[in-house]
């Protein structure tokens, strides 16, 4: 028997919503493992999980739920996350795929809310296009470490909520063709991608809160920014400045692009 009495103020129907709503999580390491953990604690019961990788020692500093034994056994990350959910939920429905997200596209289509915790601009572009095609609410998380002017590091996280009809990542200036071109030109030279477990935790928490807000309407008519940044240096979270120039409604995706790709024989 679930006891969610301490979160019942959110919405009396949240429990039922969490049973009906299918959530997908793409990428199960730094950001994704936090998201899965929180979703399971909240009480979500229907999951599609995907990640191509197995657990290694280097993941233990950021992947919630992973153990030394998982790293030594090279346990697939999807199995670690499935075990974590089953430890918190009595009867979850989990579709776990060890592979690239597109390999489980046919399962991901059924998700109503999709979380993406991926590393590349191209993957973000592809996942957002996928989400728009199937009218899925997409919540993307990520973090960056860059050199600051004072020689130190600037650690920042961000959450982007892409809803059908709302501003997309291109509208908001989060991704653009130059970034995609640069990424393609620099392919294979990405080096290590720094991750900080607590920054991942902050942005993952914001992403899950966003999803809970979608399901409960708790914040009512207060406009939530779709693009949120967290600056670890100043410990502040707020709307991304790019939002001030967002054009809405989105002109990048049209309703005619809905659904599976269409194949037409020539001639």
């Amino acid at each position: 028997m679930d006891d969610h009495s301490r979160q019942s103020f959110l919405n009396p129907q949240l429990d039922r919503a969490m049973k009906a709503c299918k959530v997908g999580v793409i990428g199960l390491s730094g950001g994704g493992s936090h998201i899965v953990t929180q979703l399971a604690h909240y009480g979500f019961d229907r999951y599609v999980l995907c990640d191509p990788k197995t657990t290694e020692r280097k993941h233990l500093h950021r992947m919630l739920g992973a153990t030394i034994a998982d790293a030594e056994a090279s346990a697939p990350k999807v199995e670690v996350m499935e075990r974590l959910i089953r430890g918190l939920r009595p009867h979850p429905e989990i579709q776990a795929f060890k592979g690239e997200w597109i390999s489980c596209a046919a399962a991901l289509k059924d998700c109503d809310v999709l979380f993406a915790a991926v590393d590349t601009v191209g993957a973000r572009r592809d996942i957002e296009q996928f989400a728009r095609k199937y009218a899925i609410a997409l919540i993307d998380v990520g973090m960056d470490v860059s050199r600051a002017n004072d020689g130190g590091y600037r650690v920042a996280g961000r959450v982007f909520a892409s809803l059908p009809g709302g501003p997309c990542m291109q509208c908001a200036g989060f991704i653009n063709n130059d970034m995609l071109a640069k990424e393609a030109a620099a392919y294979g030279m990405a080096g290590i991608r720094p991750q900080v477990v607590s920054v991942n935790g902050v942005v993952a928490s914001a992403a899950v809160l966003y999803a809970i807000d979608l399901l409960t309407g708790k914040t009512g008519k207060v406009a939530l920014p779709c693009f949120i940044t967290f600056d670890a240096g100043s410990m502040t979270m707020g709307p991304h400045p790019y939002l001030s120039v967002v054009t809405s409604p989105c002109e990048c995706f049209s309703s005619s692009e809905i659904g599976d790709a269409r194949f037409v024989p020539i001639g």
Binding site: E100, I102, A105, G122, I127, Q129, A185, Y187, D260, A261
Partner: peptide, 13 residues
């Protein structure tokens, strides 16, 4: 050749 892109188009990689 310099393979530099993995992408998803039409539900396929």
């Amino acid at each position: 050749v310099n393979w530099n892109t993995s992408t998803a188009i039409a539900e396929r990689s």
